[in-house]
Write a protein that binds this DNA or RNA. Structure first.
Length: 161
DNA sequence: GCCAACGTTGGC
DNA sequence: GCCAACGTTGGC
């Protein structure tokens, strides 16, 4: 049996809701609240061990702030059945859950965030979904070459400190 | 706070 | 199946 190849992703979160520091403290977290079918489908493609860029959105500046690892593959998001949750979905049925999530665990926090602006200006990252205008997808695939490049930039920033 | 760029919903 | 109306995301 060939080993499954690690896949790479990018996951957005508003730091006011859940930040890389929160994940570093909690170590592992269910990535709940995703209510977009495309993003959900990407989470369903994830496997344990996949790596994801942790991205802070709706903040100044937005950008990549660290890395997390998928620690549990997709299962039903419990918040969809929780009437007290802002993620409650009355149309989702227990025998056919509409929304999924994965668990992610903390891997690393970058010494310096890599701003969206910097991502856009890096020609080696051309084609990354997150740099494209109007890209609102909160869970998205990342090419291996882009992932590796981004880590390289993060390391370089560490040396400059 | 504005608004462009989406995605979803529902009438027809 | 079309599309107008509405809601949301997220950069700026």
């Amino acid at each position: 049996m060939p080993k499954r190849v690690t896949k790479y992703w990018l996951m957005k979160s508003e730091p006011g809701t859940y930040s890389i520091d929160d994940l570093e403290r909690d170590r592992t977290e269910p990535w709940d609240g995703v209510r977009n079918y495309q993003a959900r489908n990407f989470m369903r493609e994830m496997a344990e061990g996949d790596l994801a860029i942790f991205y802070h959105s709706s903040t100044n500046p937005p950008g990549a702030v660290g890395v997390c690892r998928v620690s549990r593959e997709a299962y039903p998001d419990p918040t969809q059945f929780d009437k007290n949750s802002s993620y409650y979905d009355p149309k989702s049925r227990k025998d056919d859950p509409r929304w999924s999530l994965v668990d992610v665990e903390f891997a690393e926090k970058f010494a310096e965030p890599i701003s969206l602006q910097a991502l856009k200006e890096d020609s080696s990252l051309e084609g990354m979904l997150v740099t494209q205008k109007g890209s609102r997808l909160s869970v998205q695939p990342v090419d291996k070459k882009h992932f590796r490049r981004l880590l390289k930039v993060a390391r370089a920033n560490t040396k400059l400190r």
